[in-house]
Design a protein around this nucleic acid. Sequence first.
DNA 1: GATGAATGAGCTTTCATTCAT
DNA 2: AATGAATGAAAGCTCATTCAT
Lengths: 241, 241, 241, 241
Amino acid sequence: MSAAGDVLAQVSDPRLVEERRGQIVRAAVKLFSEEGYYPTTIQKIARAAGISTGLIYQYFRDKDDILFLTLKMVLDTYEHDIPPQLEGVGHPVERLCMAVWTYCRIVDGLLDATVLAYRSTKTLRADRRVLVKDAETRTNRLIEACVDECVAGGHMQEVNTYLLAYQLVAFAHAWALKHWSVGRRFALGEYVAEGIKLLVEPFLTAKGRRVLDAMQARTDAFGSLGRKARRRAPAGGKRTK
Amino acid sequence: MSAAGDVLAQVSDPRLVEERRGQIVRAAVKLFSEEGYYPTTIQKIARAAGISTGLIYQYFRDKDDILFLTLKMVLDTYEHDIPPQLEGVGHPVERLCMAVWTYCRIVDGLLDATVLAYRSTKTLRADRRVLVKDAETRTNRLIEACVDECVAGGHMQEVNTYLLAYQLVAFAHAWALKHWSVGRRFALGEYVAEGIKLLVEPFLTAKGRRVLDAMQARTDAFGSLGRKARRRAPAGGKRTK
Amino acid sequence: MSAAGDVLAQVSDPRLVEERRGQIVRAAVKLFSEEGYYPTTIQKIARAAGISTGLIYQYFRDKDDILFLTLKMVLDTYEHDIPPQLEGVGHPVERLCMAVWTYCRIVDGLLDATVLAYRSTKTLRADRRVLVKDAETRTNRLIEACVDECVAGGHMQEVNTYLLAYQLVAFAHAWALKHWSVGRRFALGEYVAEGIKLLVEPFLTAKGRRVLDAMQARTDAFGSLGRKARRRAPAGGKRTK
Amino acid sequence: MSAAGDVLAQVSDPRLVEERRGQIVRAAVKLFSEEGYYPTTIQKIARAAGISTGLIYQYFRDKDDILFLTLKMVLDTYEHDIPPQLEGVGHPVERLCMAVWTYCRIVDGLLDATVLAYRSTKTLRADRRVLVKDAETRTNRLIEACVDECVAGGHMQEVNTYLLAYQLVAFAHAWALKHWSVGRRFALGEYVAEGIKLLVEPFLTAKGRRVLDAMQARTDAFGSLGRKARRRAPAGGKRTK
DNA sequence: GATGAATGAGCTTTCATTCAT
DNA sequence: AATGAATGAAAGCTCATTCAT
């Protein structure tokens, strides 16, 4: 737990460490996302974070360290922000849809950072890379678990849940990776609705399908959101922030 | 037509230009794929290509130029290697399956290079980036066209062909991007077979499904290949060469 | 008297100044000796001294200041530790031998620090350097005086006392400077005994020689010490502490 | 022979390597000697050598490499310049005197560089340090061999030849190390003459002494040189060059 | 008096690019 | 057409020194 993944700080006050690292990582996410890892200099990060160059090295051992925490932050967001949204959602099919919807929303909020994760994971030192992949695997399992529940409850046919989960994740990621194309054609809500139609609906049993229909009737689920989203993001610019 | 995408050479003999560029790009694909764009130095490329540093600048204006041609080579492979495989394949469903299968095989042959495309497209100068995305779009259209044919022929239900094509492409890419996980669980043939089950079969009409069944019975299509592939790649670790 | 050599402190209480400086210089001697002046950071000194970085600047104006006091401490040890050992020793020849013996013992206790003095004197600011050299000169004079006494008393032939003193000092220093070679071959006592044979005995008059013989017979002077020392330092690797 | 001590160059032409390294080392000897290793920047060395910063790294792996070759150059000068001077000198006593005299002359020509060797050997990486010490040992053996010959020929009493050789070396080095004091009092020739009186003469047998007397009568050996030298170096400035 | 977080100048080193040969 | 030595700007990182608390 303390081995490869730890980023040691030279400053003792934990509150300060927390705060400064936040400052730095926020600046780094933005810059790495916009320009990439290598073109982003420590100087630029420092300036963007409003601190001096030297100070960065009180909180990170080297540039790789910054990238690691930056990617970890993104991956952790995926991992930690989905479960709370599922709380209280009882039905497996609803849970799955909510998971997909939440995942896509998170990606939408971390558009550039998601692209960054794809671009820069390989840049990390090998031991770090493993940790990032582990985090990704855990997030996949979250989705996979939802699919499993559906199958177990007889709401979904027997499918390769591992691959279907992967495909759902790929779908969410594509919102960021291919945003230049996909984002021009769909609002987020529409995108998610189409995704459900493509990657969830076909595998539902009659029983499961009824749940989905009911759910959609009840909430007009993603349509409304979609229309809202469309108004706010027709062009598709940077939105990491 | 000659504007952004052209890579000017200072050498006049076109045959030589062709040859030298091939040498250089082959070396670059390998190195960029393995270590990434920035850590790969021009000197390393020259050494790997068996020529001198200076000579590279007779055939490329700068390092970005090399990356551009390198990515273009990868994208062009996608674009150009699929159609010949479809030639003579008459039935839309068969064509679609063959397209997916071919795409995955190409990706399998360019594992690292595919990852490179994801990592480094954003590194390109903006005008170049557009050209790469265009090439990607054209490849997508290839798949989309197959899907369209299926729908038009009544072999497939009405679906969002654009998105389905995207999902199929994402599926092929995932073989490279998530090879560390997927490659450990499936042989290539199995992977493709599962993909068809997940992203093609569910949308087929009864008519279409019969074609697929017949096809699979006839060729034992991917199963055999899968078994063959399995023997050769149990661990996972194919390298672009 | 207060010009170049003074190291100003910002703290008023003299007792405290004394104590803190002692703390700091002790840490500095150790670190400078082990790693050299430049590789030793102020932070390391502070940590080794058990105080904060900032506090050092309350007692020293800058890093050069610390080096100065550090070297001064070493040089002062030479200068101040010899005379007490000569007290009560009446005969010039005995005094000379005792001086050499004491000098070597001091060097043995400050092995690394002696090397430090050779390495780092030139690093000092010019005005400081002079002071260090003055201290060295005074120590030399101590030895020279002993030689002079011997000559004056007719125990030693007319020699260039200045040079002989220098050579005796060089002999003592060599115990530290060439310890990697000399320390492997001799115990300290043997080394000193050989030094006397080489640099004192040859110049003694018959009269002086008799004194030396008597002295050696009486005390088995350095032989015993030599044997003792040999047991404790067969390998060579005494560290300043 | 090729292990730790080798300094790899990235340039292939050996003549060029030789020349450039000479340029660089000459500049480095001068600068390291004057200001010390750490305060001398690569930029300064490059400027002094009349080349660009980057070029230095084509001929040296890092700064430590430069220091190593610099010190090696000094040590090699000691080792290689003495033997030729002994050629044709037949008598052991004459050979010994000539060796001492030559050593001192070499030191005189490398005043600052000799000081540098004392200051900076410890700065070298451990494996390199050993090589430098080996070179020093070999030079010592040169002197020791001369002493041995004298003893073997019955020209010198039985003495600890190892230690006597060390003292003679220390004597030569002192001309550089304590030049601020010694150089003010003696011309080089006088210094050497006094050294012979102090460290050679006393140990000669009657037979050996006669040779020395004859030699001094014949050549007025160092006196004349001493006077010459005195005129040229009364103050004692930097003379490395 | 004491702390230690913060600063920023300055260092070593790399590498895309040029150009004399 | 080809070489590869040479350039120098720019990067990551360190550390003496300061100063708010």
